[in-house]
């Protein structure tokens, strides 16, 4: 029997670029840059999100992220965290493009400080402006299937619904919506935000997500480097389970040992 069923090459493709890892990780909230670098390495991620902020001009010798997380080794995905208007988000990503020369970006326009829920009206405005300006936009959004389709329609290269509020670690609150978004989308769908532990990441992948993006679940674990490895394995396991095609759920038992030949 073929031991390599459905063993074709499996890779994550976004905006025409290929990646082996389906786990994307943030670079925030770590104890220091050394821990950041070690956790990212353990996660196996090839894409890392980064924020754009003012340089501390009074202390220019402070260590910089780029000195620890090599932009030649990892694909930097600049975000717009902290932006509450389309205008701020577009301005931030134009600066990011100039700083690094990357046009693949993560757009998130927030609507509320307490929930960090996305402001969809501003998100749509920003996405349109960025796409017109030549950006490849991976967009953080709510788990609304209609909005997801609209964002795809205006040209976003990946749809990234939240599993739960950013940094909450609550896991996938609405698997039905995530599944609906996946079924309707022709671009990659990634769960972004809300993952708390490895099983949450596996569930996202078993639902058919193309990838998972997380930060706090790793950075806020007691041992972030260990959790980074757990997430790597969970994403791989969930992906394999999705490709394998799970068994049907049944209400009653079905014996695993044959009944024939019973003494």
């Amino acid at each position: 029997m073929d031991g390599n069923q459905n063993s074709g090459e499996d890779f994550f493709q976004v905006a025409g670029r290929r990646f082996q890892s389906r786990l994307l990780v943030g670079t925030g909230k770590y104890k220091d840059f050394t821990e950041t670098a070690l956790a990212i390495e353990a996660s196996g991620a090839e894409i890392v999100t980064v924020a754009v902020r003012r340089v501390n001009v009074s202390d220019p010798k402070q260590p910089m992220l780029m000195d620890f997380v090599d932009p030649k080794k990892y694909t930097y995905l600049p975000n717009t965290a902290g932006c509450y208007t389309a205008e701020d988000a577009v301005r931030t990503l134009r600066l990011a493009r100039e700083a690094g020369g990357w046009n693949l970006v993560k757009l998130e326009v927030l609507g509320d400080q307490k929930t960090l829920y996305p402001d969809i009206v501003e998100t749509l405005k920003a996405a349109e402006a960025l796409i017109k300006d030549g950006f490849e936009v991976m967009v953080y959004t709510s788990d609304d299937p209609i909005i997801a389709k609209t964002l795809e329609g205006i040209g976003c290269c990946a749809i990234m619904p939240l599993a739960a509020p950013i940094g909450s670690g609550l896991g996938i609150q609405n698997p039905v919506n995530i599944r609906l978004i996946i079924e309707a989308a022709k671009v990659p769908v990634l769960v972004d935000a809300g993952v708390g532990t490895a099983s949450d990441a596996a569930i996202a992948m078993e639902l058919g997500c193309d990838g998972v993006l997380m930060n706090t679940a790793i950075a806020a674990a007691r041992y972030p480097i260990l959790m980074a490895r757990a997430m790597k394995l969970a994403v791989e396991a969930g992906r394999l389970a999705y490709r394998a095609g799970r068994m049907q759920r049944k209400l009653y038992a079905d014996p695993s040992s044959p009944l024939g030949g019973l003494i």
Binding site: G26, V50, E98
Partner: peptide
Amino acid sequence: PKSAFETTLLGDGDRIEIVHFIGGG
């Protein structure tokens, strides 16, 4: 643009922002 750093002269009252990448999610 980086290519214009040398040739862009600052003027009185200019508002300058210098940014870089930091850790973020």
